[in-house]
Amino acid sequence: MTLLSVRDLTVSYPVRGPLAGWWTGQKRFVDVVCGISLDLAEGTTLAIAGESGSGKSTFARALMGLTPFRSGSLIFDGKAPFPARGRPARAYLHQVSMMFQDPVASLSPRRTIGALITEPFRIHRPDLRNLEAEAKRLLVLVGLPADFAQRYPHQISGGQARRVGLARAVALNPRLVIADEPTAGLDVSVQGEILNLMARLQAEQSVAFLMITHNLAVVRHMSDRTAIMYMGRIVEEGPTDRVFASPAHPYAAALIAAEPSSLPGHHRHSAALKGEVSSPLHRPDGCAFHPRCPAARPLCSATAPLPQVSASGALVSCHFPLQRTPDQ
């Protein structure tokens, strides 16, 4: 059953330059997220992968009502939780929570861990009295010793702060957790602990995860479906195994091929991708990827491609989808 359904979501920021709009009185907008449509089923994980500047974090913030969106719609559990500009209903924030990118910075520095993880109760369940017991329950749930409740954020490690962030995100038994780069900056051994914990919570409480990440190795293991974002658009979306086995969009293919591996004899294929992401201020006409695309043709710079179903069953926005990965 579909839990979250996003249609044509667009987030724009006004351009602020030295004299922007000063003479004409018109504001220019730059689309950071342009026209995203997605469905997330209950109790599953959807990963949104892409490079920095692809708009994936902005998209996550828009879903939490932290950034207003210009157009599009959002349906959670059959209802629209909030208008494009406005604060989300409390009932929505009761069921949807977010894990932030920087684990230590997202914790109020002068509050104890115990106070921090019970903050959702103070906000949504003021009737609840025994917060100490709740704090203990949550700490145990994420595998931290119960005496951590007395510590302060600066006294714990990055991996532990992640666990605290996760404990706070699942405190109210939400149905959806939006995880923004849940493993960024973590060592591989600690990264596994956090991911295993997320998988366990999903199995036990049937919580859905919307995971924002640039780490494709993590995506491959953790998500049911994968969406690859480029310059504010989803270029390919489908079941994770199919997207990885035979990516149809040249960008998705290049990104997957560029993924480093420590296996001896593995050669990553970085040659396919030259240059860097274009500035959203000067979005290329047609397909935004065409200046970097190894398979670009005249049509690509003229019209933007519409999503179509690829041979593998994924939704691909490309005029000339690949039949097979170029390196296989």
């Binding site: 939490m64 932290l66 989300p88 977010m98 990118q101 997202s106 914790l107 903050e119 906000i123």
Partner: peptide, 22 residues
């Protein structure tokens, strides 16, 4: 704009609570 304030907003904390407690 610190992340912990944004995080509190995402939890649905009221303005008064963010100002006084955090």
């Amino acid at each position: 704009s610190e992340e912990f304030i944004v995080a509190l907003e995402s939890l649905g904390a009221s303005r008064a609570r963010i100002i006084l407690v955090h």
